[in-house]
């Protein structure tokens, strides 16, 4: 018998993966540049400090994506019979918890600064013999760095569904929302500039609330996948349509009376258990193999398939012939 599942990818996904890797390296380079630039001007503004730390945190999903890729391509072994796909989920969880922890700490700092009515001090610097308020440089740096995440955020958001990769999706989603933090830090600094000291703490609170929210969402999604909830789409918005398609495909086989599916997300690929109740209460080995092949041909993500003949279907498995949702809604999520 051939090894279960697969660790290679079809050509479309390989292309998307190569592109994703390039984007991740580009993002890491861009973020390091941004972090270094902000370090030059960070000063006494809590909003700037929060946005700065957020930029550092944004590296975690990218690094965990690239590290996880090294592992998930390893074929399954006796010691790891399901392959190492779950490493992606672990990376997702690590990123989520880091965001949650640091975001919470920054939110606490912002709130306690506001309560103590700490007025942020932003001094001056000397440029070409002129004494210039540092706040102007903060605004300039943030204005320059606001652009990048737009490009790579949208590029990665297009790639994530093709690869069914939730770490990449979360990374893209955070990048797309990054401009709100950057604008908030500008608002905070300009607020200090005009004497509204609380705008700085307010902006810091706004940014850190965003970090906490990202952390909560990602930790929750990662934990749910790690404890084997049924497979969902890459954006976690609904149950993955492949579950119903696998069940339906097996039910079409002439020797099958009923079928039902349990499918879990291993991170990029799924693990599928198909329960079948055969006609006349018996089944041949080549029929089982036929069912496995038929399922594997449906999609590159469902290669690790177990077909279990049974006298009756377990109630927690998704039975065939049940429409999860109207067909119209399913259409524009074709490759999710």
């Amino acid at each position: 018998m051939r090894a279960m599942g697969r660790t290679d990818l079809p050509p479309t996904q390989q292309k998307a993966l190569r592109s994703a890797i390039r984007w991740e390296w580009f993002t890491i380079g861009y973020s390091i540049l941004t972090i270094a630039l902000i370090a030059l001007v960070v000063g006494g503004s809590q909003a700037m400090r929060t946005a700065w730390i957020e930029d550092m945190l944004s590296l975690i999903p990218q690094i965990s994506f690239l590290v996880a890729l090294l592992f998930i391509r390893r074929p399954p072994t006796r010691a790891f019979p399901f392959g190492l796909h779950r490493v992606m989920g672990v990376g997702h969880l690590v990123a989520g918890v880091a965001l949650l922890g640091v975001g919470g700490d920054l939110a606490y700092e912002a709130i306690s600064g506001l309560i103590r009515a700490e007025h942020p001090s932003i001094g001056t610097v000397v440029v070409f013999g002129q004494t210039v308020w540092l706040g102007w440089f903060m605004v300039a740096v943030m204005t320059v760095t606001v652009i990048g995440p737009f490009f790579y955020g949208h590029a990665k958001a297009k790639l994530a569904p093709k690869l069914h990769n939730k770490v990449l999706y979360a990374d893209a989603d955070m990048a797309k929302a990054d401009w709100t933090s950057t604008v908030a830090s500008i608002v905070g600094v300009l607020g200090v500039g005009v004497g509204l000291w609380w705008l700085d703490g307010g902006a810091a609170l706004f940014i850190s609330a965003g970090i906490v929210w990202d952390g909560w969402r990602n930790s929750r999604a990662a934990v749910r996948d790690l404890i084997d909830q049924r497979a969902r789409t890459v954006d976690d918005s609904r149950p993955h349509p492949l579950t119903a398609r696998v069940a339906d495909r097996v039910a079409e086989l002439p020797w099958v009376r009923e079928s039902a599916v349990r499918m879990r997300d291993m991170g990029q690929v799924f693990h599928v258990e198909v329960f079948v109740v055969p006609e006349h209460g018996q089944v041949r080995v080549d029929e089982i193999e036929e069912a496995r092949r038929a399922v594997a041909e449906l999609d590159w993500k469902v290669q690790d398939v177990v077909v279990v003949p049974a006298a009756s279907l377990p109630p927690e498995a998704e039975p065939a012939g049940r429409q999860e949702e109207p067909a119209a809604q399913r259409r524009h999520h074709g490759d999710a």
């Binding site: 989603d173 929302a177 608002v187 607020g191 706004f206």
Partner: peptide, 28 residues
């Protein structure tokens, strides 16, 4: 994506620009 972040940012920016435009010196 979280819509509330975008909802809040516009009035904040507008408020800052307005205050900044009302002849207040920067820094102050």
């Amino acid at each position: 994506m979280s819509r509330w972040r975008r909802v809040w940012i516009a009035p904040l920016l507008a408020l800052t620009l307005c205050v900044a435009g009302c002849g207040v010196t920067v820094p102050s």
